[in-house]
Structures are given as structure tokens and as C-alpha cells.
Design a protein around this nucleic acid. Structure first.
Lengths: 243, 243
DNA sequence: AAGTGGTCTAGACCACTAT
DNA sequence: TAGTGGTCTAGACCACTTC
């Protein structure tokens, strides 16, 4: 059953995670690394890589000399900000049935903050896609994505605006989204956004202003998002630098 | 010059980081891993560990088959939320001269959210320390730390309330702060907090509600913080899970 | 003293990028 | 095709916890 691709490390990680979720480890104690390595027929290094990732995610914790243990509180966390990739996934993790509706989609000149974020010329055009995400029938989040038309290599994108941005960028721009640099801003919702989210104007919310970079480290998308703070609350694990 | 402790990996990381900051790599291209390993007299594994951390911090990026490069935009980022450990450090990174003032310090019964966060009994007492952080003379952030009196092993803590919490916990509680689980909340500042921060009541701000865990994964401190959004803005790098 | 995780080595082979 | 980073191995030794 053990093969290449996904990597051995990923397989080992998934295997251990599954056993944790099934509560197969008595007392929350995970077997020693050498034992796991022998059982799975891989090197200890591979096991350690897998455990390191699980530790970083907050699923387990390790204590030198003592052992490796399941981190019960960590298992309860649903959306960890650093790991969010698609908002569809976030909603699923919260137990919602996610759906998305495209509010608008048009091509036009980039506004000033977008030009600055994406290093665009004054006359550059961007494809602006505005979406709302719903859990069951309730709106929980609004996102505006801005993609330079210059990199949209495939003009046949109609009806694909609803797909997650990173898929859109792969299918129609031939780019891979590598990471986001996000700024977290407290806002008071304006009338339009509040209406879309189904709350009173002036309601407090968290907003993200993010720049997405591709595999060559070029900025390729600017996203602005607003969240219903009462329905979606983000968590974050902060550790000592380098750990 | 290369010795144990700090670890080889940490030394290699610091060495490369320094060379990057000094702009010693022409065209932002970092030498191949094998070359770095040979030059420094360490194994390629050690070099890779160091590079992985620099990559995770956003200092460099790597492309399979192509090479390793300096990530210019990443170098500009000053405070990355996931890596914040002491707020003194944050302010220094922003180029401020940090200082801290203890607003109040007292022992009293824990309120309900604190009891829940720290698994305390209904009659448990906590040491509550309220501090304000200043850049030069301007207040930028207010923090309230709550530590169960049960774990304060050393009663002689007077005048040490101003030190960073993690130091206080080590010196007077014999615990090591391992990580924080933080919740990010948008707020409108109440009159008291606004006055301390020198802004109008009702000003928008980001608030953190955090639980600090020790090396045994026990919750040992609950912190609530409020920031001057105009003076301190947090950034975050979000990547694909597992990367 | 025994057993655990933490660090490091030397080397093999693979996947991908450049030319 | 040559050179790069990505994955994996097998083994050594160290630091720490537990008994």
C-alpha cells in the first residue's frame, strides 16, 4: 500500500493522523519513532518529518525524553488562519454545506491600491470577481478578487468565476498560487457589504487585504474579504520564532 | 567558529540570513545546497533544515531544478503574526524604542471566560497584570494577563510584573511558555481602553484573546490585547496546508 | 540505566529546470 | 544533458525524562 506520490512522508502523516482521530492510541501516547518506522517499513527520518508536520499543525506535541502525545485541544481547532487555502474548505470544516454565488464579474482599470500591490502600470486592466460564500442559506463571507488581465491566457473563463481562485489561476492563467501575504484589518461594514452579508450597516468585522504570489514569487492576485464575525471566527497558533 | 549549541542548523540559518541582509548574493541567487554544505563543512541535510526555516519565514524561496533565491518582498515584512513572541520585540522591529508601564496588578477571583480557558475551579484566584506598551511616548497596545495563583511558586514577584510574560512564567512559576492559541476579534474600544490608548472611544481595533500553553500542554495564562490599528498592523503568511 | 526525542552525517536516487 | 532542489535511507551520537 506504501508507494511514491503522494510522498512517503505525506502517507505516514495521514496514517498517523487517522489513527489519532480513531483514538487508537491509549492514553494519547503515540508509539516511539523507531517503532513507527519499523512498523511502517520506512526510515525514522520519514516518520520524524511526518510527526514534525503534525506537531506544527497542533495535532500532537513532543517532549524530549518523554514521548509523543496527542494534543487534545489542538484537535478541536477547526480553522487555523495560517493554513487556510480555500474558503470552501473552511466552511466544510465548520460543518457547513458550502456554496458560492458570483455577485459580479467585470474587466476594468485597476484602482490604486491594487496597482501598487500587483506592480501594475497606470493603464493596466484587472478582472474583478466578487463572490459571496454561504453556509446553507446564510452569507458568511464576501470576497473580491482582482487578477491582471495580462496574465489571463485563456479568454474562455465565463462560468468559471465561481471556482476557487487558485483553481481559476491554474486553469486560465497557468500560474500556481504559492502563498498569500495577508493584512488583518478591523472594519465597520459599509451599507453594501452589510446588505450582502445580511447584517446591519456598521457591524464590526474582520477584513483581510491579501496579495497572492505565484511559484515565481510574482504577485498575481489581490483579494479583499469580509467575514461575519458571529459565524466564523479565526484562530491562530503562535509559537516561538523558528520552532 | 562552528560549534554545538546553538545548533548547527541555527548557526547556518543565521549565517545565511546575515549574508542575505548584507546583500552578498548577486542577483538574489543563493548558492546551491551542496556548495553551502561544503563551504560550511556541514552536511547537506543541515543546510536544508536551515534553508527550510528561512523559506518558511518568507526570507527566501526555492524552486526545484532552478535554485534558491532571496525573497525581496518577504524581507520588508516586520511583524509576522505567527512569529510574535514578545511585544517588546514587535515594537523594536518597527523601529520604535519600546517601553512598558504596568497599569495595575492584583490577585482576585477568575472571571468566567478565564476559568473556562484555563480549566479553573469556581473559587480559583488569578494574578491579573494589566500593561500598556509605548513606542517612544505613544501608547500602542494594552494587554491583560491572567495567571492562576496556584502555579505562582515564588511570591516575591513584586516589580517583576513589567517583564515579558514568558519570562515571568519562567522566573516565578517555573513553566516554559510553549505556544499561544489566539483568537482574532474586531472590537470597538470602550472608554477605559480608548483613554489608555489615547484614542476616541469607539475607535476600531483588533483584539486578541489568547491562551498560553506550557511545555506539558497545560493552559497557564490567558491574555487579552488591544492594538492601535493605525500604529501597528499585523501581517501573516498563509500557505497551502503542509507546505 | 533504559528509553525517548533531537541533531547530524554521508550518500542514494528522483523530479524538475535550464540550456 | 547537466545541475538544481526534493525525498528517503541507515546509522551515529547527544540531551532529556523516567524509573
Amino acid at each position: 500500500m506504501i508507494t511514491r506520490n503522494p510522498s512517503l512522508t505525506d502517507q505516514v502523516k495521514a496514517h498517523i493522523k487517522e489513527r489519532i482521530v480513531r483514538d487508537e492510541f491509549a492514553g494519547g501516547r503515540i508509539p516511539p519513532e523507531t517503532e513507527l518506522a519499523a512498523d511502517l517499513g520506512v526510515s525514522r527520518t520519514t516518520v520524524r518529518d511526518a510527526l514534525s508536520r503534525l506537531e506544527h499543525e497542533g495535532t500532537i506535541y513532543r517532549r524530549q525524553g518523554a514521548g509523543t502525545f496527542v494534543n487534545e485541544p489542538g484537535l478541536q481547532i477547526r480553522s487555523r488562519l495560517e493554513e487556510i487555502w480555500s474558503y470552501e474548505q473552511v466552511l466544510e470544516d465548520h460543518g457547513y454545506v458550502p456554496s458560492v454565488r458570483v455577485l459580479s464579474s467585470h474587466v476594468g482599470p485597476a484602482d490604486s491600491p491594487t496597482r501598487e500591490a500587483l506592480n501594475l502600470d497606470a493603464d493596466a486592466n484587472v478582472l474583478v470577481i466578487e463572490k459571496v460564500f454561504l453556509e446553507d442559506q446564510n452569507p458568511v463571507m464576501v470576497t473580491v478578487n482582482r487578477i491582471p488581465t495580462r496574465i489571463v491566457s485563456d479568454a474562455e473563463y465565463a462560468d468559471d468565476e465561481a471556482m476557487p481562485v487558485y483553481e481559476f489561476l491554474e486553469d486560465h492563467c497557468n500560474r500556481t498560487l504559492g502563498y498569500y501575504l495577508s493584512e488583518i484589518i478591523p472594519v465597520s461594514l459599509d451599507a453594501d457589504t452589510a446588505r450582502v452579508l445580511g447584517v446591519e450597516p456598521g457591524t464590526l468585522a474582520i477584513s483581510f487585504d491579501e496579495i497572492g504570489f505565484d511559484q515565481n514569487n510574482e504577485p498575481i492576485v489581490r483579494a479583499t474579504s469580509y467575514f461575519r464575525d458571529d459565524l466564523l471566527r479565526f484562530r491562530l497558533i503562535r509559537r516561538r520564532s523558528g520552532a
